[in-house]
Amino acid sequence: MGLTAKYCINCDHTLSTDKYYCPVCFSDRLEEKRLSGRGEIYSFTNIYAVPKPLADQAPYYIVLVDLEEGLRVTARYNGDHVEIGKKVELESIDRRAYYFRPIGARERD
């Protein structure tokens, strides 16, 4: 498990989207790069009104996470207390959804 992104070998830019060329230098010399999965919360919202398949999970937090590598991702937050600037790490990826937890929190059973 882990986050990956494309990385430009030519100009050292990490791409936020899946492209075939670098939007900075237009090089096609791209490689896959493993990201740390660590960052901090930029913003958040608490979701109360959910579709029926998610009714048993409400309420829950959706967070914007600024990753250490400079990218921003949208994710679910698995924690009790959320605040802007809180350090978080990737806990899991399920059906293309990212789940983050506070750094230092124990794995869930």
Rank of each mutant, 00 (worst) to 15 (best):
2 G>W: 10
3 L>D: 01
5 A>H: 11
6 K>I: 02
7 Y>A: 01
7 Y>W: 14
7 Y>K: 05
8 C>K: 01
8 C>P: 06
11 C>M: 10
12 D>C: 10
13 H>R: 12
14 T>L: 14
14 T>Y: 06
16 S>H: 13
16 S>L: 03
16 S>R: 12
19 K>I: 04
23 P>M: 11
23 P>A: 14
27 S>F: 12
28 D>A: 01
29 R>C: 03
30 L>G: 07
30 L>A: 06
32 E>W: 13
32 E>V: 00
32 E>R: 10
33 K>T: 04
33 K>P: 00
34 R>L: 10
35 L>M: 10
37 G>H: 00
37 G>Y: 00
37 G>D: 00
40 E>L: 04
40 E>R: 13
40 E>K: 14
41 I>P: 00
42 Y>G: 02
42 Y>L: 09
43 S>G: 02
44 F>S: 03
44 F>G: 11
44 F>H: 09
45 T>M: 15
45 T>Q: 15
45 T>I: 15
46 N>Q: 15
46 N>E: 15
47 I>G: 03
48 Y>W: 13
48 Y>Q: 14
48 Y>T: 11
50 V>H: 12
50 V>E: 08
51 P>G: 01
51 P>S: 11
52 K>M: 09
52 K>V: 10
53 P>E: 04
53 P>V: 02
57 Q>N: 15
57 Q>P: 00
58 A>Y: 07
58 A>H: 08
60 Y>H: 14
60 Y>N: 12
61 Y>C: 03
61 Y>H: 10
61 Y>D: 13
62 I>E: 09
64 L>N: 06
65 V>Q: 07
66 D>Y: 05
67 L>V: 11
67 L>H: 05
68 E>K: 12
68 E>Y: 11
69 E>W: 02
70 G>F: 08
70 G>P: 01
72 R>V: 10
72 R>M: 08
75 A>W: 05
76 R>D: 07
76 R>N: 15
77 Y>W: 10
78 N>R: 11
79 G>N: 05
79 G>A: 09
79 G>K: 08
82 V>Q: 00
82 V>N: 03
84 I>M: 04
84 I>D: 07
84 I>P: 07
84 I>H: 05
85 G>I: 04
86 K>E: 08
88 V>E: 01
90 L>A: 13
93 I>C: 03
93 I>N: 01
94 D>N: 13
94 D>V: 14
96 R>Y: 06
97 A>H: 04
98 Y>D: 01
99 Y>W: 14
99 Y>F: 15
100 F>L: 05
103 I>E: 15
103 I>H: 07
105 A>M: 09
105 A>T: 11
106 R>H: 06
107 E>N: 03
109 D>Y: 02
